[in-house]
Amino acid sequence: MTLNIYTVIGLAVILVIVLMALLADFIAPYSPVEASGMELESPNPLHIMGTDNLGRDVFSRVVYGARTVVVVVLIAVILSGVIGTVLGLVSGYISGILDKILSFVMDSIYAFPSLILAIALSVALGPNIFNAAVAIAITYIPTYFRMVRGQVLSIKNESFVEMARALGLPITRIMARYILPQLTQTLVVVFSMNSADAVLTEAALSFFGLTVQPPTPDWGFDLYKGRGFILSGAWWMLIFPGGMITLLALGFALLSEGVSQSYVVKEGE
């Protein structure tokens, strides 16, 4: 795979934010939950991103806040990716009534606003970080399901798969050996695009107070709090958490754009 400029920038952004989450203890100059300055200090040498209404260092909160979003997105995307792919493989390969029912359910969920479904789910499951991840995962299962199922339908009648079937290989082997490898390209693109979506949904759930509880730092929730200080002109409480959410989502979007471009070029010429 040739490395596209979008791929490089996207990966770099994601990597920096993941490292920030991992190394938060070393990067953040102050505790994210205790006051380290005056209230609402604008950015200055001691607090490069200023302080919030409780005198906490915004930069430290931004650094630690990366943890929440990275954890939630990681769990959500892996869960939905694995479940969606497996269901899609089975449904597409076996066909029949099970396939019809599953497709119908998945299409219906897909048509429903994913954010509202995620909200409803995390309200029902109870607001905490793991449940938020599960809620996001459930809403994105249809994305993987539909894509994988469609691909399986077109692949399963190709000669190499029929050959494997004629040889009497077990279904699980056929899927793992012959079908899944054909899907990797598309999966990578969908995976990175879906991660961008998951970042936004996580931020939205946080914005509504459905992930972590205060005082745990979290970009979405910090942005929500900053909203009350617009008229005080405390722009730093908005720009930094809001910017980080957009930046991380942008990283995944660029990665997806870059990866899909490389594939198109490779197939085209």
Binding site: A203, L223, G226, I230, T246
Partner: peptide
């Protein structure tokens, strides 16, 4: 991939 509250609050600002 713009986060709606981020853009909205920026525009308010």
């Amino acid at each position: 991939i713009i986060f709606i509250p981020a853009l909205g609050l920026f525009l308010q600002l």
